[in-house]
């Protein structure tokens, strides 16, 4: 009886903690959006965030896209050859990269790189009282720390996705023409003919949503970091895991919204 009570109590406590965390997260989201649309806007912090989130993520996103596009071409060729459909490689690589793999893998790479660094940086600022210092210096941490980072990520991740899409398609092209015997002109023609504007745009919209979520989650866990090195470490880990799960879940919901019904 005692064991059952402990079990039910444990489940209840976990559920309450989860709901509490969810509520704090939603409130944080509203506060961040309000901070983005209110003055003062810290333009220097914004450009710094554009540089660190966008520009410095280019190598990792580019390399990921290149190898993904190349592997995708090999897989589609191998699968397509079972029913004599090898010719679809260029179009499927293009559609797969722009609709799904470009935004999702780009988002996950940014989550690993950016959510962790934002959470660690803000978490360290919290444990060393730098956030308290900001408040005493009449500066709202939401406006100074969260708003520039979240806006920068929302605007730069779609650009990263566009670059990743192009590099991924190029990776497929390299393998298609170099290893699988496609004619270079035909490959490019096939890619262009089958790719629609909405394929690209939907991926960019996904990128903006993923960028927003990654930075938001990084800021949230950083500002709610526990004490000491362990607290910052836990905040960093939670930020990466939560951002990754949110990207995959929101990707499914956006795909439902964009491509069904």
């Amino acid at each position: 009886m005692g064991l059952l009570r402990d079990l039910i109590g444990g489940v209840g406590r976990s559920a309450l903690a989860l709901l509490g965390g969810l509520g704090r997260g939603v409130l944080f989201l509203f506060r961040t959006v309000a901070a983005i649309f209110s003055l003062p806007f810290y333009i220097r912090e914004f450009w710094h965030a554009v540089l660190t989130i966008g520009y410095f993520s280019l190598p990792v996103v580019g390399l990921t896209a290149l190898f993904t596009g190349a592997a995708l071409a090999l897989q589609i060729y191998a699968g397509g050859s079972r029913f004599q459909a090898e010719a679809v490689v260029p179009s499927i690589v293009a559609i797969g990269m722009t609709r799904e793999l470009g935004p999702v893998l780009g988002g996950l790479m940014v989550a690993a790189r950016v959510a962790s660094s934002i959470a660690a940086e803000i978490g360290t600022m919290k444990v060393t009282e730098q956030i308290d210092a900001l408040v005493t210096l009449s500066t709202d941490p939401m406006r100074y720390l969260a708003a520039p980072r979240v806006l920068a990520a929302t605007l730069t991740v779609p650009v990263l996705v566009a670059v990743g899409d192009s590099i991924g398609i190029f990776g497929g092209y390299l393998v298609g023409t170099g290893r699988l015997g496609f004619n270079t002109g035909a490959y490019l023609q096939n890619t262009v003919d089958f790719l629609e504007t909405w394929d690209v745009l939907s991926g960019l919209v996904k990128g903006a949503v993923f960028g927003f979520l990654v930075a938001l989650v990084g800021c949230f866990f950083g500002m709610n970091s526990g004490r000491g090195a362990q607290g910052v470490g836990r905040a960093t880990k939670s930020a990466v895991v939560s951002a990754s799960v949110l990207i995959l879940a929101s990707n499914y919901m956006l795909t439902e919204l964009f491509f069904t019904g």
Partner: peptide
């Protein structure tokens, strides 16, 4: 305010 650890912005 002077904070215990300084709380200077890195």
């Amino acid at each position: 305010m002077l904070f215990q650890g300084g709380a200077l912005f890195d």
